[in-house]
């Protein structure tokens, strides 16, 4: 039940949607609705206007550009991302993270754009988004701009998006050869959000050593973060069990970990190190395959 009244429109172009957002009163963008509507039902969000993107067909596409960039439209559902052959092959950690979101129904309707715009600290897709160094493309009254994923997540439910901007696309740069990635998650048993989710992206050299490592961590802190200490520790190593364990042990360094009924901050930090190791192991395995 939603008791707070609002007006609703479903424009057919991005420009129209941006104009609608700039109108009077507090307006919110709605896509799959799986972040916003639960809040509205609890009375925690009371927008005066909803701008629905569902009629803007171009926002649902996943395409590969000439330079290998994979551009995922904001309206792509978690399920479409999970099953997309390109995403599975090139952005495995993203496909896995999308496949771990909520449950079947949430994945069937919830969108990546909605998830990133909402910026729940326990959402899954922020982890691979930052690990792959993706770019968030937003359109506002002044036109389009690209925001680096690492600059995009500002805090709990806080992003670099302005109130009158619409997230239209997430752009994943082409990954070098011999890159493997994986997402490992400890799910909250009731809400199914991530208590800890780690996306690892690892590129290896021809001799098998680690050329580059990126770790995106969600669920553990106020916002998704890159575990830079762990990345540094892994880079240049042989990528063997010992090196992986040593690097993973640093994945929660310096964070202020969240705490709830399922996991205290101490346990959460421990989980980050365990799931970092599991994600790195699988990522390296794939990079070598």
């Amino acid at each position: 039940m939603i008791t707070h009244p609002f007006t609703y429109q479903a424009p057919t172009t991005i420009e129209e949607a941006v104009r609608a957002l700039g109108g009077a009163g507090e307006a919110k963008v709605i896509a799959g609705g799986h972040s916003l509507l639960p809040l509205m039902k609890l009375g925690l969000a009371q927008p005066e206007m909803l701008v629905d993107l569902r009629r803007i067909a171009s926002l649902g596409e996943i395409r590969t550009e000439a330079d290998g960039t994979i551009a995922i439209g904001a309206l792509a559902t978690h399920r479409v991302i999970t099953h997309d052959q390109t995403v599975r092959a090139k952005l495995t950690a993203l496909a896995e993270a999308a496949g771990e979101v909520g449950d079947l129904q949430v994945r069937a309707r919830g969108t990546i754009g909605g998830s990133l715009a909402h910026a729940d600290p326990a959402a899954d897709e922020p982890a691979p988004t930052i690990a792959f160094d993706a770019t968030i493309r937003a359109v506002g009254p002044k036109g389009q701009r690209d925001i680096r994923a690492r600059d995009y997540f500002k805090g709990t439910f806080e992003t670099a998006l302005a109130a009158n901007e619409i997230l239209v696309e997430i752009r994943f740069p082409a990954q070098p050869a011999r890159t493997g990635s994986a997402y490992a998650k400890f799910a909250h048993p009731a809400s199914r959000f991530a208590v800890t989710g780690v996306a690892a992206v690892v590129t290896i050299k021809s001799d098998g050593s680690v050329e580059r490592a990126a770790l995106g961590v969600t669920g553990a802190a106020a916002a998704a973060y890159r575990a830079t200490e762990a990345e540094r520790a892994l880079t240049g190593t042989k990528g063997d069990a010992k090196a992986i364990a040593a690097a993973a042990a640093k994945a929660a360094d310096g964070i202020t970990a969240l705490s709830d009924l399922v996991a205290s901050s101490e346990y959460r930090k421990h989980l980050v190190t365990v799931y970092a190791r599991r994600a790195i192991e699988r990522a390296i395995e794939r990079a070598r395959a």
């Binding site: 609705g33 509507l37 039902k41 609890l42 949430v106 069937a108």
Partner: peptide, 29 residues
């Protein structure tokens, strides 16, 4: 439920299993 957890309200919308408690009716136009 009222938190989109239980799935009792699941219907198919354009072939997709959807929690009908987490979709506005106007969105189903």
């Amino acid at each position: 439920c009222d938190t989109s957890q239980c799935g009792a309200c699941t219907v198919l919308v354009d072939g997709r299993a959807t929690k009908a408690c987490t979709m506005l009716a106007v969105q189903a136009d």
